[in-house]
Design a protein around this nucleic acid. Structure first.
Lengths: 183, 183
DNA sequence: CCCCGATGAGACATTCGTGTCTCATCGGGG
DNA sequence: CCCCGATGAGACACGAATGTCTCATCGGGG
């Protein structure tokens, strides 16, 4: 009888990922509940988006944990990261867009935590001589986000196969487009 | 006396790049004209966005021309492309977001033309043995867009220096993050 | 079996952006 | 110097989405 708040959130995430401008009414219908009930659980669209943000951050941090970023070489850790992040990629893309849309009225601290962990991975790779040092960890982090977003959209629009998601992103990010003799 | 339509468009582009949800009134004020006048030149927000889209496509195609994608090796052509695209990157990022926001009520043919030219560059690189062939031209094109977008946002937010824009994007796209012995 | 809390449907007021219109004003060309 | 077109400011109506509220209904736990 009682609405499953988490289920509603995931449905909303799936919908908003496809259509970022979806109405509260559309979100409610998608979740199979009434608009009034949706409002009882989330006091307005902003609250809903914030809840989604927290969900995204939670899942992303879970993905970071699962990827064991400190283990093995940085390249392998990066592979695991992208693999783990893949299911969250759509939500992530939505949240990033949402954030840069409504000029950050104050960024959630969770993003900073996540940025720090990802940056640390790239920094570790540089220190261990696996990553080049002329590209800053900050840029590599941004680039990773960008590629994940592009990958998510491309998969969603059917321009690339979902099964290639991880491979394409990691291969491009690690090795680049240039054909290398050492490969 | 008469409003400079092109100047209004460029001002609107600059504003909407920073704040994609800016009001018609905000756009008018930013351009230093009245809202009524703005409406006289662009019959509504949609018309304005379409005009911006045409401007973006026009400038992007001009950048493609200036980059002489057919000359030299594909890597060098790609470098030139990113250099030429840099001034349009912000507008480009806005338009991409706008497009994926309001589910394509029909994509402007210009994008297809541009996609074709960029893809062709990557394909040429593959055929001439300069680019690896396990990453499809379609994905490389998407990735380029994603990196340009990320770069534009990162520069706008001051997370990376504007002067590094071209270098960061091209280096990452061509060589990847991995430290290569041949470099 | 009944009751109470949760829900769904819908009415309603409010807010916000849009699009149209009017009118006074400005300014350059004739 | 005057006139006419373009402009700016603002009023106004409209539509869309939001947020609140009421009321009937449903269903599980006591």
């Amino acid at each position: 009888m009682t609405v499953d708040r988490d289920q509603v959130l995931r449905t909303a995430a799936a919908l908003l990922t496809r259509k970022a401008t979806a109405t509260m009414d559309e979100v409610a219908r998608a979740a199979g509940i009434g608009r009034a009930t949706l409002h009882r659980h989330f006091a307005g669209r902003e609250a809903l988006v914030r809840a989604l943000e927290e969900l995204g951050i939670r899942e992303l941090e879970a993905a970071l944990d699962a990827a064991r970023l400190d283990a093995d070489g940085a390249p392998d850790a990066l592979r695991r990261l992208v693999t783990e992040v893949e299911p969250v990629a759509g939500l992530l893309a939505f949240l990033v867009t949402e954030n840069q849309l409504f000029e950050t009225e104050q960024m959630h601290e969770g993003w900073a935590r996540i940025d720090a962990r990802v940056s640390a991975l790239f920094r570790r790779g540089q220190e261990q001589g696996e990553f080049r040092i002329d590209l800053t960890p900050a840029w590599l982090t941004e680039a990773l986000y960008g590629l994940i977003g592009s990958g998510a959209w491309a998969v969603q629009d059917g321009r690339v196969a979902a099964k290639d998601f991880q491979y394409m992103i990691v291969e491009l990010l690690l090795g680049g487009a240039r054909r290398s003799v050492e490969k």
